[in-house]
Design a protein around this nucleic acid. Structure first.
Lengths: 353, 353
DNA sequence: CTCAGCTCTGTGAACGTTAACACGCGCGCC
DNA sequence: GGCGCGCGTGTTAACGTTCACAGAGCTGAG
C-alpha cells in the first residue's frame, strides 16, 4: 500500500529526493500558515486552542517530524551536547557517560561523543573542534588530567564547557568531581579506628588529580592522627599495578592496613596478599575506592569508598545548563564536589593474631 | 583585539547574532564566488590548484569552519551516526561503544548516543525516533535481546540499521556479533581435554541470545564428546548470580569443571568455591567469558574466552557503511561473526587429588 | 466613538550551504 | 574555420525552519 509508485506519467524517473513532509504540508492540511505550525511546535502561547488542536491533528495524520537541521541553522542551537570521553571503557567513565546522557535526555538534549585516545592538548582540542563543527550547544569533558583543563581554556570562549572528574584547579571551566580527599579520609580514618598503627597506600598515577587528591587526603588524615606516613609508589589504575605494589607490601611485616586508590588496584593487592599467605582482614586490611559492581564479591568482599557516578553525571549536566543559561560573560567558575560514602564489607577489620 | 566592539554609530545595540564567518566571507577574501569555496571544501576536481590554494589560505586566515547544519539541511545527510546503547556501563557494551566511536571517527562520522533503560519495544522505538529527528545517517544498536530486533523492524525503512551483539535470527537488520557458540565450544573442549568427565555451566539470563548461544555451544560440545549434560540454572550477568550458582555447585562433588557465561559470574563462582574450601584448579576448574581487563588478576587468574570488542565495533561500523552505500532496496541481511579466542591462565587444569 | 493595546494569524526575509545550470575559454578534430 | 567538448568559474534557486514585522479583530478606557 504505502510503497512508492513509479511515476506513471511522462517523467522518466522520480527525482532522487523523496520529498519529506514539511511544515508547509501540515499547514495546508490544517488550513493555516506555516508560521502557525511553527508556533504550535514551539508552544507559543498565542495560538487558539482550537487551531492548535487542528494543527496537532494534521501533524499526527501526516506523521510529521520537524527538521532539526533547519531549526539549528536559524536558531544556532542544536539541542545537542558534546561529551569528550576518555577511557570510557572503564566503569567509572562509562558510568559518568551514562549519567550525563540520561540527564541530558530528560532535559531534551541529544548527546554526541568524541573520544580521545589520550589527553594531550592536541587531541582534546581536536575533539572540541569536531564538536563545535557539529554545533553542539555545550561540552562536558570527562577530564581526569590537568592537561584537559589547559586545552579547554583554549576552546572558543563562546562554547560553554564543564569538566567532570578532574581537579578544580583550573579556571578554564567549572568542575564537578568526587570529593576525593574526603573519600580518602573516610577510608584512612576507618582503618585507623580499627586500631591499625598506620595505613599504607597503593596509589594511582602521579599526574592524575584524582590520584593526587586521594594521596593528599590519606596523608592529612595520618598526619592529623599522628601516625607515620609511609612512602608511596605510583602506579596505574589497574590490577596489575596493584599486584606489583601488593607484592612489595606483603613482604613488609609493618603493613597491616592498605588503602588502595581504586578497586582494581585493590583486586591486585588482594591477590598479592593471598599469594604471600597473608589473610585478609586478619593479617592485613584492605580498602578500595570506587565500589565497582562486583567488588562485593572479591575474596574477601571489599570495603570501599562508593562513588555515585550517576550523580556526578547529573550534576555536571545541570551545571552546564546553568552556565549556558547565563550570558557568556564568564562568571567565576565553580567547583561542585560530590560526597563519597564508605561501604564497609569484610576486607577490613581489627588486627588479629 | 578580536573582541567585538560596541557599535559606535547610531544603532543602540549590536544585534544578538555575532555574525560568524561564512563561505561568502572566504569567497570575498579569495576573490572568487562562494560556490568555488564550496567546491574546494568538497574536493571537487575542477578547481585550479592556484585558486584552491588561495581559497584555502583565506579559510585559514579567517579561521573559517563550515556550518554543518546548513550542509545537512541541503544534502540530507548529517555525517552523524546514532548508537542505541544498553547497559553501556558494563565492560562489554562500553567497549563496543568505544570501538564503534573510534571507527566512526576514522570514517569521518560523528556519533550520537541514545541509551535505553530497558529493551522494551517502546523505548527502543523512541530512541530510534530521537535519532531520526536529529537526522542521523544510520543506526547501530547494541542489541543483546530479541526485542530490539523486533523494534528495529518497525523503524522507518529509509533508516539503515545494524544490530551488534545480538542473535542473527532477525531479518530486520544485519547483525554482527561474537561467535558465542564457538567460544563456548572452545571453553568446554578445553576443560574436556583437561580430563574432566563433564563440564557444568553457570549460565546467564535465559532471554539473552548471547546467553542462549553459549549454552547451546556448551551443550553441543558435551553431546559430541558423549559427556552427560548437567542441568543449567539461569541467572543474571553479575557476580552475585555467579556466587549463588557457585554455592550450589560447590556442594556437588561431581562438579569438577565449570564454564561460566561471563567473567563476572566466574568471579562469584570463584568466591563460592573459595568459601567452600575447594581449591581452583586442583579441585575444580573454572573458565569464564569476556576477558575483562582484570580477570587475569582474579584468585586464581582466570582462564577465559577473549572477545575483541573493538573489532566488533569496527566490523559493525563497516557493515553499516556498506549497507548505507548500497541503495535502500533491502539486500538480504548478513550476519557477521567475530571469532573469539581462548586465553588460558591458571584457573583451569587437570583434576588433582 | 475612537484609539490604544491586546490576541491571533499571515507574509516575507533571513540562516549558510549545495545543486543545477549557464557561460566563456581553449583545445582538438574534421 | 566551425564545432563539440571539457575545464574552471559564476549565478540563481532550493533546503525547512524561525524571526521580524504587519495586519485584522476584539476589548475597554477616555
Amino acid at each position: 500500500m504505502a510503497s512508492r509508485k513509479p511515476a506513471a506519467d511522462g517523467i522518466p524517473a522520480a527525482p532522487a529526493r523523496p520529498r519529506l513532509t514539511v511544515m508547509r504540508d501540515v499547514a495546508k492540511l490544517a488550513g493555516v500558515s506555516h508560521q502557525t505550525v511553527s508556533r504550535v511546535l514551539n508552544n507559543h502561547p498565542n495560538v487558539r486552542v482550537e487551531t492548535r488542536e487542528r494543527v496537532l491533528e494534521a501533524m499526527r495524520s501526516l506523521n510529521y517530524r520537524r527538521n532539526l537541521a533547519a531549526r539549528t541553522l536559524v536558531t544556532r542551537q542544536s539541542d545537542t551536547l558534546g561529551i569528550i570521553g576518555f577511557e570510557t571503557t572503564l566503569f567509572g567513565p562509562a558510568s559518568m557517560l551514562y549519567g550525563i546522557e540520561s540527564a541530558a535526555r530528560d532535559a531534551g538534549y541529544m548527546v554526541s561523543i568524541a573520544s580521545v585516545r589520550d589527553l594531550e592538548r592536541r587531541q582534546v582540542l581536536e575533539a572540541v573542534d569536531r564538536l563545535t563543527q557539529h554545533s553542539v550547544d555545550g561540552v562536558i569533558a570527562i577530564a581526569p588530567k590537568q592537561s584537559v583543563n589547559h586545552a579547554l581554556a583554549q576552546a572558543p570562549p563562546s562554547l560553554q564547557c564543564v569538566a567532570v572528574g578532574g581537579s578544580g584547579e583550573s579556571d578554564a571551566a567549572p568542575t564537578v568531581s568526587i570529593d576525593n580527599a574526603a573519600g580518602a579520609r573516610l577510608a584512612t580514618q576507618h582503618l585507623l579506628d580499627l586500631g591499625h598503627a598506620t595505613v599504607h597506600h597503593a596509589a594511582g598515577p602521579s599526574d592524575w588529580p584524582e590520584s593526587v587528591e586521594r594521596i593528599e587526603g590519606w596523608r592529612r588524615t595520618l598526619y592529623a592522627a599522628g601516625a607515620v606516613v609511609p612512602p608511596v609508589e605510583h602506579g596505574w589504575w589497574d590490577a596489575e599495578s596493584g599486584y606489583a605494589q601488593g607484592r612489595a607490601m606483603a613482604r613488609d611485616p609493618a603493613v597491616t592496613a592498605i588503602f588502595c586508590a581504586n578497586d582494581r588496584i585493590a583486586l591486585g593487592v588482594l591477590r598479592a596478599l593471598h599469594e604471600a599467605g597473608k589473610r585478609v582482614p586478619e593479617d592485613v586490611s584492605v580498602v578500595g575506592f570506587d565500589d565497582m559492581p562486583d567488588s562485593g564479591f572479591f575474596v574477601p568482599p571489599l570495603t570501599t569508598v562508593h562513588q555515585d557516578f550517576g550523580e556526578l553525571g547529573r550534576r555536571s549536566l545541570s551545571l552546564l545548563l546553568e552556565h549556558m543559561a547565563t550570558s557568556p560573560e564568564v562568571p567565576p567558575p565553580d567547583r561542585v564536589l560530590v560526597a563519597p560514602q564508605l561501604v564497609i564489607r569484610t576486607s577490613s577489620g581489627p588486627l588479629r593474631h
